[in-house]
């Protein structure tokens, strides 16, 4: 982390960047939050550890409008989102100084809590320089520990790899933490009967409180005005209809980001209700891969997504329909 802070200081002091976009400590030992640092002395609050799951790409939409460059810290998987935003002209590459920060998997405190670790006062073992094998918690009930991997976010178990897709420089080591099949959960749902699927999603989505956290954090949900907030369509009124959240909102949202979603997993990470929202997106990603060939949104800033491109080898619409 110190290396990162030193470099940020250097860049700020040299005037090469006007601000640094990173994380600062929150009110708890495991909830650092995204923050801008405009002065070198502010960097004392800078934090980067296993709990810095937030994907900072989307903040660059607003930062691109500001004077001067912004140093932005992007983890390997965040760079996919950044590329996708470049492709959609939502961020300005020239306004960003991208420091690819090392990542050994990010943590989900809820998973630690489920392991019975409660009353947490401090955590160690999650610094970038740590081996990140074991987490040690000081709790009001004494010291507790768990395997680092056991507290990782779901998305890190299906890690896209330790390489940054776009960067100006890289600080820190990364680790590929993949130990599960990306589409295993989707396949499980695909195997369900229509009635079971309906019940499954009804159950999941009925937890939704329409706080819009998923939408607000999603780098693909970058519209100036969301259709759900617009008076131009009648969708705003439909939001009041019973069970809209369950049946419409998330499905429409998934459609809107289909082909653009990089599977960054932020939606599921921030959902206060613990809804596994990434399942929708991942189903579309799986379908796109199967119908049009493997495609990873944001792997580069140029390739046309299969849903907004046409090739003579594209599958026929009737084939799509036959799959059901």
């Amino acid at each position: 982390m110190q290396e990162l802070i030193n470099r940020a200081k250097e860049l700020l002091e040299s005037g090469e960047v006007a601000r640094v976009l990173g994380w600062k400590a929150g009110d708890l030992p495991y909830n650092p939050e995204p923050a801008y640092f405009e002065k070198a002395e502010d960097l004392k609050d800078f934090v980067y550890n296993g709990f810095c799951g937030a994907n900072l790409s989307k903040y660059m939409i607003e930062a691109s409008k500001l004077e001067g460059k912004t140093m932005v810290c992007l983890k390997p998987c965040d760079t996919y989102s950044f590329n996708q935003l470049i492709k959609e002209h939502r961020v300005d590459r020239d306004k960003a100084y991208i420091v690819g920060v090392g990542c050994k998997g990010k943590l989900d405190i809820e998973k630690a809590k489920k392991l019975g670790i409660k009353g947490i006062e401090s955590v160690s073992g999650a610094e970038m320089s740590d081996a990140c094998d074991t987490l040690t918690f000081q709790t009001i009930y004494g010291e507790k520990s768990c395997a680092y991997a056991d507290a990782m976010l779901e998305r890190c178990h299906v890690c896209k790899g330790k390489d940054h897709m776009i960067y100006d420089e890289i600080i820190g080591e990364s680790r590929d933490t993949k130990d599960a099949e990306r589409f295993a959960e989707v396949e499980m749902i695909e195997a369900m009967s229509p009635a079971e699927k309906f019940a499954f999603f009804q159950e999941e989505l009925s937890k939704c409180i329409r706080c819009n956290a998923c939408r607000n954090v999603c780098p693909a949900c970058s519209c100036r005005k969301c259709v759900f907030d617009s008076t131009k369509f009648d969708s705003a009124q439909k939001a009041n209809v019973d069970s809209f959240e369950e049946k419409m909102f998330h499905v429409i949202r998934a459609f809107h980001v289909a082909g653009r979603c990089t599977d960054c997993g932020e939606c599921s990470r921030v959902c206060p209700q613990g809804i596994r929202l990434h399942l929708f997106n991942r189903k579309y990603i799986k379908d796109i891969n199967e119908l049009y060939g493997e495609f990873q949104a944001g792997a580069d800033a140029e390739a046309r997504g299969p849903l907004t491109n046409f090739t003579f080898d594209d599958c026929e619409p009737s084939i799509v329909a036959e799959r059901g």
């Binding site: 492709k87 959609e88 002209h89 939502r90 970058s222 519209c223 100036r224 005005k225 617009s230 131009k232 046309r304 907004t308 491109n309």
Partner: peptide
């Protein structure tokens, strides 16, 4: 295009 709602994302131009 509705100017106030357009993101300038180029998706429409692509298709």
């Amino acid at each position: 295009a509705d100017e106030l709602m357009c993101n300038g994302c180029s998706t429409c131009a692509n298709v």
